[in-house]
């Protein structure tokens, strides 16, 4: 696609709508809630300036917050992984020179993308779930919920890479 800006605006809208109208309504067993909008942060170009990544992540987090009445929680978790993103990419990549700018699965391969998604999503969910309960009481219960929801989110994100936002 020639205009990356339009692609990302479209991605933003699709992911927010999918998140608030479908995924937030799943409420599977009252326990699992996948947060797939993280994909937006995952797919931002690797060459994007860091301030842009942080601000865009904050913005998508805040949008989700407004829709789900959790003001501040999603934006906190999103900014958190946006800040860690370059470090995580550095750690899991061994030959940095041949990385494509767009970190979609079609360019990076399944193994790399799965590792990348798993780490980012798990950190995001863990931060989010602890902020949501706002206590370390029932520590393992919260961790368990974060873990289950992460599995679900990772599954949906990797699956979605076969269908949309491929390039």
């Amino acid at each position: 696609m020639q205009r990356p800006g339009i692609k990302y605006i479209l991605m933003f809208i699709v992911l927010v709508v999918a998140q608030v109208l479908f995924l937030n309504q799943i409420q599977f067993s009252g326990f699992i809630n996948p947060y797939v909008y993280v994909l937006f942060i995952l797919l931002l170009p690797l060459s994007a300036p860091r301030y842009a990544v942080l601000l865009l992540s904050f913005f998508i987090g805040l949008t989700i917050d407004v829709f789900s009445n959790t003001l501040g929680m999603h934006s906190f978790a999103s900014v958190f992984i946006a800040y860690l993103r370059p470090a995580i990419i550095r750690v899991i990549t061994n030959r940095e020179e041949d990385m494509h700018d767009y970190p979609g699965m079609a360019y990076t391969g399944l193994a790399w993308f799965l590792t990348y998604t798993a780490i980012m999503v798990f950190i995001h969910h863990t931060v989010l779930f602890y902020i949501e309960v706002f206590t370390f009481h029932n520590f393992f219960n919260t961790l368990y919920r974060a873990f289950l929801s992460s599995l679900f989110s990772i599954f949906v994100i990797v699956l979605s890479q076969f269908i949309v936002f491929r390039d």
Partner: peptide, 18 residues
């Protein structure tokens, strides 16, 4: 600056939550 911006946004989020 990325670290400062990171701190700023996180503090803003915490203010929202509290």
């Amino acid at each position: 600056y990325p670290f400062l911006l990171f701190l700023l946004l996180e503090v803003l989020s915490i203010v929202f939550i509290i």
